[in-house]
């Protein structure tokens, strides 16, 4: 976990530095967008393979599928709802500032 976190942070930071240096013009930016999309879909495909290849997923899904779906759906729904509740508190100040800038 510690190593992973450090690795992800470093990679993100390298990206941030390159992005902020204005090396990337609009044209490259657009093609980056396309590369990003292809990479993302490929990653999701491989992640799907990992899930499908694991024998435990298939056997347990048949046995525990209903419970698992109920647990994950309720967890997601309540999380989304609660985040929605605090959204205004979290973003209040920055939105006011933005509005001032606009007006």
């Amino acid at each position: 976990m510690g190593f992973r976190l450090a690795l992800y942070l470093i990679i993100l930071l390298i990206g941030v530095i390159i992005g902020s240096k204005n090396i990337i013009n609009k044209k490259i930016g657009n093609s980056l967008d396309k590369i990003q999309k292809v990479c993302l879909l490929f990653l999701l495909f491989i992640m799907g393979i990992r899930i499908g290849i694991d024998d435990r997923v298939v056997s347990n899904f048949l046995k525990l599928g209903f419970k698992a779906i109920l647990i994950s759906i309720l967890g997601i729904v309540l999380s989304v709802f609660l985040v929605k509740l605090v959204k205004d508190i979290v973003f209040k100040k920055s939105k006011e500032v933005k509005n001032c800038r606009e007006s």
Binding site: Y8, I11, L12, G15, G19, K21, C39, I46
Partner: peptide
């Protein structure tokens, strides 16, 4: 094949995080 997917995911993830970084930096 499972063992190979590990490497691909690690690599793909790093690449994508790099792109996310660029988006943030811009």
């Amino acid at each position: 094949i499972f063992n190979y997917t590990d490497i691909i995911i690690d690599f793909g993830l790093c690449l994508l995080l790099f792109f996310v970084g660029i988006d943030i930096g811009r």
